[in-house]
Amino acid sequence: MIVDLPSTTTSQVNKKLVELRESGGAVALGRVLTLVIVTSDGAEVEPALQAANDASREHPARVIVVAAGARQAAARLDAQIRIGGDAGASEVIVLRLYGPLADEGAGSVVPFLLPDTPIVVWWPSDAPDYPAKDPIGALAHRRITDSAAEEDPIGALRARARSYVDGDTDLAWTRLTSWRALLTASLDLPPFEPITAATVTGAGSSPSTDLLAAWLASYLEIPVRRVEHSRGPGIVSAVLERPSGNVEIVRPDGRSGTLTQPGQPDRTVALHRRDLRTCLAEELRRLDPDEVYENTLPGLTDIVRGEEPQETGTQEAPEQAEQAEQHT
Rank of each mutant, 00 (worst) to 15 (best):
W215L: 11
T184A: 11
L211G: 00
A159Y: 07
A203W: 02
L139I: 06
R231A: 15
L139E: 07
R225N: 15
R160K: 10
D188V: 08
I136M: 09
R251K: 11
A148Y: 07
A156I: 00
D166C: 11
L183N: 05
R143D: 05
A217C: 03
P207K: 02
D152R: 12
R251T: 01
I249C: 05
Y219K: 10
V250D: 12
I195E: 05
H229F: 05
R251V: 05
R158P: 02
S178L: 09
A198W: 04
R158I: 05
I222T: 14
A172E: 03
P243A: 12
P135L: 07
V200F: 00
S208Y: 03
S147P: 13
E248N: 00
E241F: 10
D146W: 11
D146S: 12
G245W: 09
G245D: 12
S186W: 01
W179S: 00
L157F: 05
E193F: 07
F192R: 13
L139V: 12
R160Y: 09
T169E: 10
P194A: 13
V165P: 14
T196K: 08
V236P: 01
T145L: 04
I136T: 07
A198H: 07
E241A: 11
P135Y: 06
A140C: 02
L171H: 00
E228F: 10
A181F: 03
L176H: 12
A238V: 11
P194F: 10
D188W: 04
A185Y: 08
D152A: 13
I136L: 01
S218Y: 10
E150I: 01
V250Q: 13
G204H: 10
G202T: 02
L182C: 03
S186Q: 06
N246S: 15
A203V: 00
A138K: 14
A148P: 06
I235A: 00
E221V: 12
R175M: 01
